Simulated assay, not measured.
Amino acid sequence: MCYSAQIIADYRKYVKMFGADMSIREFAQFYWERVEGSGAKTPKAMDAAFLGAHPADLQRIQTSIDQFAAAQSMKLEQDLFKQRSRLADAERTLLIKTTKAATESKRIATDKIDAALRGLDDLRRTDLKERDSRIYPGWYAPVMIVQDGQRVVLPMRYRCRLPGWTAETEKFKDGSYNAKRDSLKTAWRKLFGFQHGIMVVDWFYENVQRDGENVILRFDPTPGQPLLIACLWHRWTAPGEPDLLSFAAITDEPPPEIAAAGHNRCIIPIKPEHVDQWLNPDPKNLAAQYAILDDRERPYYEHQMAA
Rank of each mutant, 00 (worst) to 15 (best):
R235F: 09
Q195G: 13
H234G: 02
L228S: 05
L191C: 10
D243F: 03
H196R: 00
D202E: 15
F204N: 11
G197C: 01
A248G: 04
R235T: 14
P226E: 05
A248P: 00
H234Q: 04
E206D: 05
E206L: 08
F247G: 02
Y205Q: 14
R218P: 13
E241H: 09
G193K: 02
S246N: 07
D211S: 10
T237Y: 13
F192A: 02
K190L: 06
G240F: 02
H234M: 00
P242Q: 04
H196F: 00
F192E: 01
W233C: 00
P223W: 10
A248W: 01
Q195H: 15
V215R: 06
I216V: 15
W236S: 02
H234W: 03
L228R: 08
A230T: 07
G193P: 09
E213H: 15
I216F: 14
M199L: 13
E241C: 10
L227E: 07
Q195C: 12
E241D: 12
F192Y: 05
Q209M: 15
F194V: 11
K190F: 10
L191T: 05
N214D: 08
I198P: 09
F194G: 05
V208H: 03
V200H: 06
V208P: 03
D220W: 11
P221A: 01
R218N: 14
N207I: 07
L228N: 11
I198F: 15
N214S: 12
P239F: 03
W236Q: 02
E213F: 13
G212L: 04
R210Y: 14
G193A: 03
D243A: 09
D211I: 03
N207E: 13
L191P: 10
D202I: 07
I198L: 05
I216W: 15
H234P: 00
G193R: 06
D211E: 15
F194R: 09
V201Y: 06
C231G: 02
L232F: 02
G224M: 13
T237M: 05
Q225A: 10
M199R: 11
G193V: 04
P223L: 06
L227P: 01
L244A: 08
G197Y: 01
G197E: 00
F192M: 06
R218C: 09
K190N: 11
L228V: 12
D220N: 15
F219T: 00
V200P: 00
T222S: 14
P242W: 12
Q195P: 15
P226I: 00
